[in-house]
Design a protein around this nucleic acid. Structure first.
Length: 532
RNA sequence: GUCCGGUUCGUCUAGGGGUUAGGACACCGCCCUUUCACGGCGGCAACACGGGUUCGAAUCCCGUACCGGAUACCA
């Protein structure tokens, strides 16, 4: 039997991190077993479902790379079938009409009201005391024919228990007495969740239902419906929940954008990194490896590795550096720093384009960013603005970056003349050493004398000037430093601030070289930072 | 209330009758160094509690506590 799983979100908000992980586990399970991964939008709650939510969820799934293998099913399209199933159950005597008037909605919080009602009922609630439960079919039909409104409830047997072997939590049993005669069809004819899910899962031939642990009691209800329908239920696997730092529920209202998938996409996270992080939240292959490619995750995924305890998604709203989980941030940085350059370059291109920092020349020449291999880019000096230069630059600066956004913010000075100066950097590396105001332009003169102002390609034709390369730059800067009787760090950090606008970055010798002689001279002579 | 589930460093976790209880992130220190959020080395830090079974329990059993989920004519 071919495995068929589904991810079934209800479109009442964006793609939540917990839902994203549920989607991931379904996806991994399907791929691992050569099965199908399906998507069903559970939009039967017309009042709360919105197209915007559906779009947002689809966006999130697309970003993560989970494309469904078959057409998306919209649950609301199947309402007629759900109704027909309820009616069939009624005909078969497995369900009954409940003519009790619909309860008035309480003004209090729905959850609280339900909890309160449950508390009052206590432990010895009699769930089989509905007066309409044993109404004769004739009388029931008559009242219905007379136009009296009714809901259809499943007639849960008085004694016995539902049970299923959960692939994560083990054997689950629940006495029938714990389950009320659940409503299948509302008095306005609207099918309810548990009925709709069972009908659709049967119709979609779902073999494994992998969903959040908050559905555990629903599963017992659904097993009851399967039994009434005479259909063998699928295999169930419930996932532990992802909680907020205080162990409470993670919600948009309380925690905001940090739980939305699109936040991470927009913050410059790599989908592969976030997937990797998510996979390790509540699942483990039982080894010490942390970084997994998608193929490795697929190969190693098993329901056996899923935990039974909830995991905390850690973040501190007060600390900008820890706005989201530490490990997620580390994972993303790790990917940016170590992933194959050819995989990273297209993302950088997109990021630069979005910030008007991209130049088409980066794509020209014998190679393009997507085909370039850093090992082949050893030709020096590099011509600024070429593909080779672009590839080398990205490889150089990525070592200190955490997100794709850093390429257009911290890395802006490499791609544009229009960059800002970090106030702290200016203070610490420039203004603290007023002499630099004279010295750095002087260093520019020295560079010009040593290296000329010709373009790198014509430099070789000029016998008396040297190549603007790391080794040569180092010689010049060291001599200059000694001459001024200062420390190398003072000159280097001052230059760094002027050249890149920030206080951190790769080796300054590499920075000089990658920025190039022409821009180096201009920036060393500029007074803009000093006046800021 | 009742039912269900859970509990190993701050967090994610490995392990599952005999381990110096391992790794990762975070944090701290040292090193490298022209800076640094890179890198290297090191440190801090955990089996919820109480009984039992056993030669031996973090590991098995029972109970307690705490946490979470569920409870609907929502999904």
């Amino acid at each position: 039997m071919t495995v068929r799983v589904r991810f079934a979100p209800s479109p009442t908000g964006y793609l939540h991190i917990g839902s994203a992980r549920t989607a991931l586990f379904n996806y991994l399970f399907a791929r691992h077993s050569g099965g199908k991964f399906l998507l069903r939008i559970e939009d039967t709650d017309l009042a709360r479902s919105t197209d915007e939510s559906t779009r947002s969820i689809l966006d999130g799934l697309e970003w993560l790379g989970f494309a469904p293998d078959e057409e998306i099913v919209f649950q609301s399209d199947n309402a007629d079938k759900h109704r027909a199933t309820a009616l069939k159950l009624l005909d078969d005597g497995k369900a009954y009409r409940d003519f009790t008037p619909k309860a008035e909605p309480t003004d209090a919080n729905v959850k609280d009201a339900i909890k309160e009602r449950a508390r009052q009922q206590g432990g010895d609630k009699n769930m089989r005391d509905n007066p309409f439960r044993e109404l004769s079919p004739a009388e029931s039909d008559a009242r219905a024919a007379a136009g009296e409104p009714f809901a259809i409830r499943l007639k849960v047997p008085a004694t016995g228990k539902t049970s299923f072997e959960d692939q994560v939590y083990g054997l689950q049993e629940r006495d029938y007495g714990e389950t009320e005669d659940l409503v299948l069809l509302r008095s306005d004819g609207h099918p309810l969740y548990n009925l709709a899910v069972v009908c659709d899962d049967i119709e979609m031939q779902i073999t494994h239902v992998i969903r959040g642990q908050d559905h555990l009691t629903n599963t017992h209800k659904q097993v009851l419906i399967y039994e009434a329908l005479g259909v063998t239920p699928p295999t169930f696997a419930h996932l532990p929940l992802i909680m907020a730092p205080n162990k409470g529920k993670l919600s948009k209202r309380k925690h905001g954008e940090v739980v939305s998938m699109t936040t991470y996409r927009d913050a410059g996270f790599l989908a592969e990194a976030f997937r990797n992080y998510l996979a390790l939240l509540g699942w483990s292959a039982g080894e010490e490896q942390e970084i997994y490619t998608l193929d490795e995750l697929i190969a190693k995924f098993s329901l056996k590795g899923i935990h039974r305890s909830n995991a905390i998604f850690n973040f501190s709203p007060d600390d900008p550096r820890k706005w989201t989980d530490d490990k997620a941030q580390w994972m993303n940085a790790e990917y940016i720093r170590t992933m194959p350059l050819t995989d990273l370059l297209p993302y950088v291109k997109t990021e630069l384009k979005a910030n008007k920092l991209w130049r088409d020349e980066y794509d020209e020449g014998t190679r393009t960013p997507s085909s370039a291999n850093i090992d082949e880019v050893e030709v020096r000096p590099l011509e600024i603005g070429t593909c080779d230069w672009f590839v080398r630059t990205v490889d150089l600066i990525r070592q200190r970056f955490f997100t794709l956004r850093d390429f257009s913010s911290q890395g802006r000075a490499y791609f544009s003349e229009d960059y800002d100066f970090d106030a702290a950097a200016v203070e610490k590396n420039l203004k603290k050493f007023p002499e630099l105001r004279e010295w750095l332009p002087e260093l520019a003169d020295r560079f010009e004398a040593e290296f000329g102002t010709r373009t790198p390609s014509s430099a070789s034709a000029e016998a008396d000037t040297q190549t603007f390369s790391e080794a040569n730059i180092e010689t010049v800067v060291k001599a200059f430093t000694e001459e001024k009787g200062t420390k190398l760090g003072v000159i280097m950090n001052g230059a760094r601030t002027l050249l890149t606008g920030v206080a951190v970055g790769p080796s300054m010798l590499s920075v000089f070289e990658i920025i190039g002689l022409e821009r180096t001279l201009m920036r060393l002579r500029s007074q803009v930072a000093w006046n800021s």
